[in-house]
């Protein structure tokens, strides 16, 4: 009887794992099946490097969207990653336990806020601010607004993963360093952070994935103009925003082109996860 129960439980676990993998496979097949023909029909080069997006005339070029996604993501990482990593460092090594706990709770809450709320906050607070003080009344829906919102949104990911990787570092490293006469700060920057480096990189790369994929908050603040940005205050449309914005009404070739955008986004995400895997794996070997 006990053995049977054991077998049953095992079956349950295997089924769950299979469902998980199957879901991934199905999504992949579906997106490529729906999107790849459109890319091929337009021509891979024309689709990826075309700068005109005219759905009614069936002209589909997504270079402006790719550029926007890359710029916005880089910007969000440049701000979000250092802030996140330093916060994690503070929580792990410097903060008194109580303050550390408060910070951790705050991070968790930050992670659970729905993205539309971030977007709304951006629309009501950040955009008018940019409009008034930086853009001289020319709008405010811009790359900059999207970067600010996204850099806040990736914080929880960056903080929690770098924090756990820092906690994995053997505490005796720190004691040894301190015993050799190094100061607290130089111990953190020269010993502890380098030891947790692969984990911190993994945190940053997951942050990149989050920033690249976010649509809802970005739609509300980025302006969604499908053209090549010429300044940080220009309105832009990211790939994920393009899909979410137009899918509602799209049909025929237009809808297929949106799935095509999805394919390109998927390839980007895939590459990022691949890098994530390599970084983690490399770190594992070193330890």
């Amino acid at each position: 009887m006990k053995k049977k129960l054991d077998k049953l439980a095992e079956l349950l676990f295997i089924t769950s794992a299979i469902i998980c993998v199957l879901a991934l496979l199905l999504i992949m097949i579906f997106i490529f099946y729906k999107g790849a023909p459109s890319i091929l029909e337009t021509g891979v080069f024309k689709f990826l490097f075309g700068v005109e997006w005219q759905p009614r005339a069936e002209v589909f070029g997504i270079l402006p969207m790719i550029t926007a996604s890359v710029l916005v993501t880089i910007g969000a990482i440049l701000i979000g990653a250092p802030v996140g990593v330093l916060t994690a460092t503070f929580i792990v090594y410097l903060a008194p336990k109580r303050i550390g706990n408060i910070l951790k709770t705050a991070t968790d809450v930050l992670a659970s806020i729905p993205s539309v709320i971030y977007g709304f906050f951006g629309l009501m607070i950040i955009i008018p601010f940019i409009d008034r003080f930086l853009a001289g009344g020319a709008g405010g829906n811009s790359i900059l607004a999207a970067i600010i919102i996204l850099s806040i949104m990736i914080l929880p990911t960056v903080i929690s993963i770098s924090e756990s990787s820092m906690r994995e570092v053997d505490i005796s490293y720190r004691d040894a360093s301190l015993a050799l006469g190094a100061t607290k700060i130089s111990t953190i920057f020269k010993v502890m952070i380098p030891s947790a480096f692969s984990g911190i990189m993994a945190a940053v790369i997951l942050g990149v994935g989050r920033a690249l994929g976010e649509a809802m908050a970005v739609i509300l603040v980025s302006g969604n103009a499908p053209f090549m940005p010429d300044s940080i205050l220009a309105p832009v449309r990211t790939m994920s925003a393009n899909i979410a914005l137009e899918m509602g009404y799209a049909s025929g070739a237009h809808q297929e082109a949106l799935f095509g955008t999805g394919v390109v986004l998927f390839v980007f995400i895939f590459i990022i996860n691949f890098i994530f895997y390599i970084v983690k794996h490399k770190g594992g070997v070193k330890n």
């Binding site: 709008g139 829906n141 739609i219 302006g223 969604n224 103009a225 499908p226 053209f227 220009a234 309105p235 449309r237 914005l245 509602g248």
Partner: peptide, 8 residues
């Protein structure tokens, strides 16, 4: 105008 802000 391609710089126009697009909203839904």
């Amino acid at each position: 105008f391609s710089r126009a802000i697009i909203t839904d």
